[in-house]
């Protein structure tokens, strides 16, 4: 499988990358780790005439703490996420999820920016970013803007990012100390996208849930922020009735397709189980 021809660019700065995107408008694509784009180009589902490889832009690498925000550079790889002490301490759900993405080779290449910008509902990071209420920083010809992960995804492979914008950072409000979080993903084998998966983040005080957010992967056209499901937990002691209500609220917004991972009804069922297990794990991990 040979991809179509393209002209290759390797800009050294975001400004240069933006200029290249503006000049070649709809014929150009950014290349980060290439592990979603290259397979699509090999299948000729994407045939860009210009490839703008971001690898030399050093400002896009790295994980840092900026006040009460965790800032992840777009080119940070999934493998970097797994190895990050900062994330292990402040936001362990990212490591848990990264370990469930693809396989070691893919994780050395695949980037956080590419994973969230791609727009494939099968990608695992977007739902987690929605649960964390992260935002994405985008830089384009008209300057810089931040887009909430909860507003970013419009349809499969359609996002709020402009054709001439580069996603430079993922910015996560540092989760409350003592929060509990879990990402539960069901997949058929290593390297498979989720049949369904759920991210749950919650805080517990004196046995009562004081905050909760829930989001789902691969059971709709986009990642799904299940706001009502989180609300169903807040103010309860996470008893069976509250958990049932959250599971039902989450299942109610799923619209999976039937595919090799199972019929739609089954995937909605799995989403419910993932939510239930993730709530239990998050509760256990909260302190």
């Amino acid at each position: 499988m040979i991809p179509g021809s393209f002209e290759y660019h390797r800009p050294g700065s975001v400004a240069e990358a933006v200029a290249l995107l503006s000049r070649h408008s709809d014929d150009a694509r950014l290349l980060a780790g290439g592990h979603s784009l290259i397979p699509m180009m090999k299948l000729r589902m994407a045939q860009p005439e210009h490839i703008v490889d971001l690898q030399d832009i050093s400002t896009l690498h790295g994980i840092a703490q900026d006040g009460d925000t965790i800032v992840i550079g777009a080119l940070t790889t999934q493998n970097d996420v797994i190895g990050s002490n900062v994330l292990a301490e402040t936001c362990p759900i990212l490591r848990e999820a990264a370990l469930l993405i693809a396989d070691p080779q893919v994780r050395y290449c695949g980037t956080v920016g590419g994973n969230v910008a791609n727009g494939d509902p099968g990608n695992d990071m977007p739902a987690i970013m929605q649960a964390l209420n992260a935002s994405y920083r985008a830089e384009g010809p008209n300057g810089v803007r931040n887009i909430a992960a909860r507003d970013f995804y419009e349809a499969s492979f359609f996002t709020a990012l402009g054709e001439d914008e580069v996603l430079t950072q993922v910015r996560i409000p540092t989760p409350a100390a003592g929060h509990g979080a879990a990402y539960v993903k069901q997949k058929r084998k290593v390297g498979d996208y989720a049949t369904a998966a759920a991210a749950v983040i919650l805080s517990v005080s004196g046995g009562n849930c004081t905050a909760a957010s829930i989001a789902l992967t691969n059971v709709g056209d986009t990642p799904l922020y299940a706001e009502a499901a989180g609300q169903a937990l807040v103010g309860t002691n996470l008893d069976a009735a509250a958990v049932d209500a959250a599971v039902q609220a989450a299942q109610a917004i799923t619209q999976p397709v039937s595919d090799g991972r199972g019929p739609a009804e089954f995937r909605t069922h799995v989403a419910g189980i993932a939510v239930r297990r993730a709530i239990a794990l998050a509760q256990e991990r909260a302190s």
Binding site: L31, G34, I51, D53, P104, Q105, C109
Partner: peptide, 13 residues
């Protein structure tokens, strides 16, 4: 220093 699937990388990269 990374294990890479060389069928999923352009030579230009």
């Amino acid at each position: 220093g990374k294990s890479v699937k060389s069928c999923t990388m352009f030579v230009a990269q």
